[in-house]
Simulated assay, not measured.
Amino acid sequence: MTSLGTVLHKPIQVSLTPGGFGPFGEHTTNASWVAVQELQKLGLGDEVNLHVYEIPVEYQKVLDLIPSLWKRHNPELFIHVGVSGMATTVTLEKCGHNQGYKGLDNCCYCPDTHCCIQGGPDCLESIVDMDVVCNKITGPQLDVVISVSKDAGRYLCDFTYYTSLHLSHGRSAFIHVPPLGKPYTAEQLGRALQTIIGVMLGMLEHSTVKMNCLLEH
């Protein structure tokens, strides 16, 4: 049996996908990509292996890429970052939805069924309690406002999140960022991602330790 200490010191695998590359509507720079670039500069600590991949705004590419990345890295947590033109806060999405995908992607395509996974539940939630994450970092730690949402938008962000939640049995998270300058800088968004992901990983590690202690007794 692997000892608890060995489990705790094993490198943590985290996969991260910023989505919607290129200009976003009237915005010339995509905030999700820029924020993730800033996060890569800051890092998540020596014990975390961060794997970053681009996800294009295409339904079929999501269905192909997400499973392959899960198989390749088997991450403790798969985090997706998207930009929302309506957002004014950094938003933690609680759940992904299976139905209602009628918007065309960058290839002018949408699923005929208008759903992610045929026969799947209407809604899937992350095992990460987003309300707890938000409460843990509300205060002077960051100069950004963080909020929680139950609706990721029924477009590629929501589609990606549901697909990932379905494959991971909930070991996924989605973070929406506002457009650059409305009101935050790239550096502020990068620090926000670093703090948020750190809290999420700490919560998962605590859950793993608790589970291992229960199994040992």
Results as ranks from 00 to 15, higher is better:
Gly25Cys: 05
His27Thr: 09
Thr28Cys: 06
Asn30Phe: 03
Asn30Thr: 01
Ala31Tyr: 05
Ser32Lys: 01
Val34Gln: 11
Gln37Asp: 13
Leu39Met: 11
Leu39Glu: 08
Leu39Gln: 09
Leu39Ile: 04
Lys41Gly: 04
Gly45Trp: 06
Asp46Val: 06
Asn49Val: 11
Val52Tyr: 00
Val57Cys: 11
Val57Leu: 12
Glu58Ile: 13
Tyr59Ser: 02
Tyr59Ile: 02
Lys61Ile: 14
Leu63Lys: 13
Leu63Cys: 06
Leu65Pro: 01
Arg72Gly: 03
Asn74Gly: 10
Leu77Glu: 02
Phe78Asp: 02
Phe78Arg: 03
Ile79Trp: 01
His80Cys: 13
His80Ile: 15
Val81Thr: 03
Val81Glu: 05
Val83Ile: 08
Val83Cys: 07
Ser84Gln: 09
Gly85Ser: 12
Thr89Arg: 06
Thr89Ala: 14
Thr89Tyr: 05
Val90Asp: 07
Thr91Val: 14
Glu93Thr: 06
Gly103Asn: 12
Gly103Tyr: 02
Leu104Trp: 07
Leu104Ile: 09
Asp105Thr: 09
Asp105Tyr: 08
Cys107Gln: 08
Cys107Lys: 10
Cys107Met: 03
Cys110Lys: 11
Asp112Phe: 03
Asp112Arg: 04
Thr113His: 03
His114Val: 00
Cys115Asn: 02
Ile117Trp: 10
Ile117Arg: 10
Gln118Asn: 08
Gly119Cys: 08
Gly119Glu: 07
Gly120Thr: 00
Asp122Gln: 11
Cys123Lys: 09
Leu124Ala: 01
Ser126Cys: 09
Ser126Gln: 04
Met130Thr: 15
Asp131Ala: 06
Val132Ser: 14
Val132Tyr: 14
Cys134Trp: 01
Asn135His: 13
Ile137Gly: 02
Gly139Met: 14
Pro140Arg: 11
Gln141Ile: 11
Leu142His: 04
Asp143Val: 10
Asp143Leu: 03
Val144Cys: 01
Ser149Leu: 13
Gly153Thr: 09
